[in-house]
Design a protein around this nucleic acid. Structure first.
Length: 554
RNA sequence: GCGCCUGUAGCUCAGUUGGAUAGAGCAACUGCCUUCUAAGCAGUAGGCCGGGGGUUCGAGUCUCUCCAGGCGCGCCA
């Protein structure tokens, strides 16, 4: 409600000038939707906030602000309440403009321009290509993807990126594991044994089988060292292919798959180390290269290049970070599992060491997922190979419910994911609740065609025919979408959108049960049809952001 | 030992950056389908916001401390 804010700003300024009060520099007019129905459409507590620096009574100040408020047609009623709140009731114009705006903007309804076209990168999932994705990655995928969509809606220029750890020791281990399984598959298992901490999952046996089908036993005739390189590269590619397929089927599409190995191939490590050295954030000692993390509060400096000349994981992450900035991103978002939280201060430090502001890099930490089945925890063990993969989950409960469930909770809260609940096609399941609202609206429009009734034009909307509180509530919910986009983008809080979707659907269901759309007086019908069309658009856009389908029938 | 996250209705969780009488969903109970989809709606009941101090006009929200649970603390990634 930008107009109301501006009116209030003017009034405050006028009063300040009159009494020679000083408005604090950080003061902004903030208005909110009161939770109490009797408190009007919008409320603000600015009088209480300003009362301190003006050294006046908050209630008196509130009265004065209201009196100083420029006359405007959007305000129906303004009153002082409680200890100094100001409550505003608006004229019904806002309903008309909400419905109009939704219908006219269509798939763009809800977009705001807070991002102003700035470039932001969301890096998420980035799981090591050593095995299929599990449900923890699934939560990261849903949160990352939906956050990116929200930022897009908030006016940012967004890129989704997956960082592949395709170099280093764990890749060697992966290759050795594949090699061992391959020898087993051709009946020469005694020649190569599975490494102690190798990758034991069933998928490795399957991969070995494809090698046998393709190459028979020819790979075994080369020296082991020589064939290892092949096993590493091929296996990595196959596993990455599985991951890509899983994510694609989960509705997640990346703009770029960034290879860690490419940092080495393109010689991007040294320049990054030089950048740190040049600003004296890196130094050599005991034959190793160290990062001065103690300058940023770490309890010890961290190694960048080992004594033996080998880089650490940290090395490539520094180079990768620098590379992101070289690609002119103005904001970087990392989506990580909370088990990596200990690493946050270090990336933040490097960020500062490279000369960037703290606000340019944000890490979204995602807490664990507890998998349940009918209220019972599902026991999983990596060793026993009983990890439930993302693939299994989406096969069992479907993409829509999986995505919705993963994003339903605040990121920093652990998530209970109940497979039985997610599968239930009942009211216990919030996904269907939202989709059902959409399907119901589509159904009304089908009925319209069936009865040969013309679809109304926007000009047919007559707000005076909508007097029921349920209609007003529904319009309110529709009008909230742009605010919700702005807030969830600012807070990087995708769960807000899931909640909003439920609120919007609830307002619709309540309206639907109490009021008929078809079969009432024509002007009323037209207005209601336009109101639910606006609802449909808002629902569709929200479901689109969540990556959940909007079925026309259920 | 140190650090991060969490603790709100029987269960799962929101809580508008410190605001008015703390809210949903599920489970429980009571009603609502000859008319656009009952995967829905309306209502009832359910609370020491983990405990205790502090900050102020005002605290679920900020601070300190304790308790409980989860997760981290390598020249591993």
């Amino acid at each position: 409600m930008q107009e109301l804010k501006e009116l209030l700003e003017k009034a405050v300024q006028q009063i300040a000038n009159k009494h020679k009060y000083k408005v604090p520099d950080d003061f902004v007019v903030r208005i909110e939707r009161p939770r109490q129905a009797g408190h009007g459409d919008w409320a603000t507590n600015i009088a209480m906030q300003l009362a301190k620096s003006f050294t006046v009574n908050p209630k008196k100040l509130a009265t004065e602000i209201i009196e100083a408020l420029p006359k405007d047609k959007i305000i129906e009623k303004a009153e002082v309440a409680g200890p100094g709140f100001m409550n505003f009731t608006l004229t019904s114009d806002w309903i008309t403009s909400t419905v109009k705006s939704a219908i006219e903007k269509g798939k763009d309804y809800g977009r705001v321009n807070d991002g102003n076209g700035r470039r932001v990168q969301v890096e998420f999932v980035s799981a090591n290509p050593t095995g299929p994705l599990h449900m923890g990655h699934g939560r990261g995928a849903a949160v990352g993807d939906i956050t990116a969509s929200i930022l897009d809606f908030a006016g940012w220029n967004v890129e989704r990126e997956y960082y592949t750890n395709d170099s280093g020791l764990q890749m060697e281990l992966l290759g050795k594991s594949a090699q061992a399984r391959y020898f087993e598959a051709i009946g020469r298992g005694d020649e190569v044994c599975m490494p102690e901490d190798g990758y034991q999952g069933e998928y490795m046996t399957d991969i070995a089988k494809t090698f046998v089908e393709k190459y028979e036993d020819s790979l075994a005739n080369k020296p082991l060292d020589e064939s290892l390189k092949f096993f590493i590269e091929e296996t990595c590619e196959i596993v990455l292919g599985m991951i890509k397929k899983d994510l694609e089927d989960f509705g997640v599409k990346f703009d770029l798959w960034f290879s860690e190995k490419s940092l080495y191939d393109k010689n991007l490590i040294e320049p990054a180390m030089d950048a740190l050295k040049a600003r004296d954030y890196a130094y050599e000692q005991d034959g190793a290269l160290w990062f001065r993390s103690t300058l940023f509060g770490d309890d010890k400096d961290r190694v960048l290049i080992r004594q033996n000349g080998m880089p650490t994981y940290f090395t490539s992450d520094v180079a990768y970070l620098k590379n992101k900035y070289d690609r002119k991103f103005e904001k970087l978002i990392y989506v990580w599992g909370a088990d990596h939280h200990g690493y946050v201060p270090r990336v933040k430090s490097v960020n500062k060491a490279l000369g960037h502001k703290d606000t340019e890099l944000e890490v979204l930490l995602i807490q664990m997922v507890n998998l349940l089945r009918g209220g019972q925890a599902v026991q999983m063990s990596k060793r026993a190979g009983t990890i439930i993969s993302l693939r299994e989950i989406i096969d069992e409960v479907g993409v829509d419910a999986t995505r919705f469930f993963f994003v339903m909770r605040r990121c920093d809260s652990t998530l209970d994911f109940d497979l039985e609940l997610a599968k239930k096609a009942t009211s216990e399941n919030p996904v269907f609740y939202v989709q059902y609202a959409y399907a119901r609206i589509c159904s009304i429009y089908r009925e319209l065609t069936e009865r040969n009734i013309a679809v109304p034009l926007i000009a047919d909307f007559n707000v005076s025919t909508l007097i029921n509180p349920l209609e007003i509530t529904l319009a309110t919910e529709i009008s909230r979408l742009p605010e919700e986009i702005a807030k969830s983008a600012e807070e990087l809080a995708p769960h807000r959108i899931a909640y909003y979707a439920t609120d919007l659907a609830e307002a619709f269901h309540a309206f639907y049960n109490a009021q008929r759309v078809i079969g009432v007086e024509e002007s009323v019908m037209k207005s209601r049809l336009l109101l639910i069309e606006a609802t449909r658009i808002a629902l569709k856009n929200v479901l689109g952001i969540l990556g959940v389908s909007a079925p026309e029938r259920m």
